[in-house]
């Protein structure tokens, strides 16, 4: 990863993702300023700010953009991300960058699709699944996302389906293994469609238990854990290679908070170097240095696994 210039990087949020982002940046020798949501204006002297607090991020992102400060958002709330995607003109006018959904899913999933894309002549399907949560705000988002409407891209049309439906057994790298996964209110399909507009089918699923689905429309019955114990991400890409149908599956088994923090940190470094043009982007798009960010994430301790199956 190229070193960032002297300008500092700010982080809004002291939670799991914020602290992992700060740790990654400090390990790489970069100065970091951390502020809470209430004191976010203290970061007006930074060139890039990572939003690592709970949703919503769009309003605060607009505030930073108005100051000409680039923003890396780790949020995965569907409406919030859609709001940020509407800020293209404002970001360009202020010569600032917004990277929306720079966490695990979305975020790392876009980097993996960008990486796996090179193994194909063309790709037409992307299916992602995520297991686990980061900090308490992420757990609340997971809870709420099973109660709303999910979006999916199917043969060139946006489909809305109830979140919590569409059970599918997804295999994650060890030690997570097989988990029942369901549709959820995620911005992943919207962002993935921006990565590869030629895709025909995009789905995003999240692992959930019967209790998660049963209580999704109720308030959380108990306070979420400080951090999810285990996490995993799985990205399945289908397309054509050597004239034949081909499938590649890549996964990661790591805490969701760690994946998100590492991805956010390396994305912020990429934005700080000034190589990203002004506007609203998401990871995986060609305008971002996806290979550099993925290399940085791997060097920071994220291990990639490829599923190697047989024809049986």
């Amino acid at each position: 990863m190229t070193s960032a210039p002297t300008s500092s990087i700010g982080i809004v949020g002291h939670g799991i993702v914020g602290s992992r982002t700060a740790l990654t940046l400090q390990t790489l020798g970069h100065s970091v300023k951390v502020a809470s949501l209430r004191t976010a204006t203290e970061l007006f002297d930074c060139s890039v700010v990572v939003l690592a607090h709970g949703a919503p991020h769009a309003a605060l992102a607009s505030t930073f953009i108005a100051q000409g400060i680039s923003v890396v958002s780790t949020g995965d709330n569907l409406e919030d991300v859609m709001s940020m995607l509407d800020s293209q003109e404002r970001a360009e006018a202020r010569n600032a960058v917004i990277v929306a959904g720079a966490s695990c899913s979305p975020g790392m999933s876009g980097l993996l699709v960008s990486h796996m894309r090179r193994a194909f002549e063309s790709i037409d399907e992307v299916h992602t699944a995520v297991h686990g949560t980061g900090g308490p705000m992420c757990a609340r988002q997971h809870h709420d996302s099973l109660a709303g409407l999910s979006v999916g891209w199917h043969d060139g049309e946006w489909l809305q389906r109830p979140a919590g439906s569409g059970r599918e057994l997804c295999w994650f790298p060890d030690p997570v293994g097989a988990r029942d996964c369901y549709r959820f209110a995620s911005p992943e399909p919207v962002l993935m469609q921006r990565v590869e507009p030629g895709l025909q089918r995009i789905t995003a699923r999240v692992s959930a238990t019967r209790r998660d689905r049963l209580t999704a429309r109720l308030p959380m019955l108990r306070r979420p854990h400080a951090e999810g114990l285990e996490g995993a991400l799985r990205v399945e890409v289908r397309g054509v290679r050597n004239g034949r149908r081909h499938v590649e599956i890549v996964g990661i088994a790591n805490k969701v908070g760690s994946i998100s923090g590492v991805v956010a940190a390396h994305t912020a470094l990429a934005v700080a170097t000034g190589v990203v043009p002004a506007g609203v982007h998401n990871l995986g798009q060609a305008v971002l240095p996806n290979a550099d960010i993925l290399d940085g994430a791997v060097n920071s301790g994220i291990t990639l696994h490829q599923f190697v199956g047989t024809d049986q």
């Binding site: 060890d174 290399d295 490829q306 599923f307 190697v308 199956g309």
Partner: peptide, 15 residues
């Protein structure tokens, strides 16, 4: 029974 074939292999991104 659950699928017994295949598995996960660690990979390093190739440029």
């Amino acid at each position: 029974v659950a699928p017994q074939q295949g598995g996960w292999r660690e990979v390093t991104p190739q440029r």
